[in-house]
Amino acid sequence: MGTTIMAASYDGGVVMGADSRTSTGSYVANRVTDKITPLTDRVYICRSGSAADTQNLSRYVQWFLEQHGMELGDDPEVKTAAKLAQTMAYQNKNLLQASGGLAGLIVAGWDKHHGGSVFAIPLGGTLVKVPFSIGGSGSAYINGLCDRLWRPNMSEEECKAFVVKAVSHAMARDGSSGGCIRTVVISKDGIKRSFIPGDEVPVAAGELPPPVRQVRA
């Protein structure tokens, strides 16, 4: 799964973003993929690498967190979810296969103890708490852009605009990223999903404007 995924924290929570392309070799197997998968009500994971590995890893983490939430009698913390995902990624890293070797994950969400937080789980299976994180093959093209644009204490709207801009620039340059942009905003008020269709993705420099959508009867 050649991918662009990212998550960024703002004042009251986090914004997660991803492209929607899944490819097998040079064929686009799914152009409307959802790479932002729920782990609990308030914790989501961005998946990159092998679709089979990351889908099934997420399924195991969902199952563990469901049980943990019952024992706890409360919603699991983001760092608990991230640590579980990291443990599974690290312990199975010899088995997990992806573009380069492993699964690259970003766990983000909101809990009442720490507010919004973002955890990156890069290729080796380490766990890093970061203010924002980018991942997948498309992220190579937007390191500079994200370093330039991210700043602390953004508003929700500013942060979402930052994520959409970064993902659309990555999609413009990376051949294995493309399609639509999906975002998830997580805060104490719950989650808000949004979907930007392919012909409404912001146009990068040197690109033709999208064709006018054909309306069929």
């Binding site: 899944t22 197997a29 799914n30 409307v32 993929t33 092998s50 679709a51 089979a52 889908q55 099934n56």
Partner: peptide
């Protein structure tokens, strides 16, 4: 759904 031999799925 599509189901691939490696165990990934898509809903379409």
């Amino acid at each position: 759904f599509t189901v691939y031999p490696h165990g990934s799925t898509d809903s379409l």
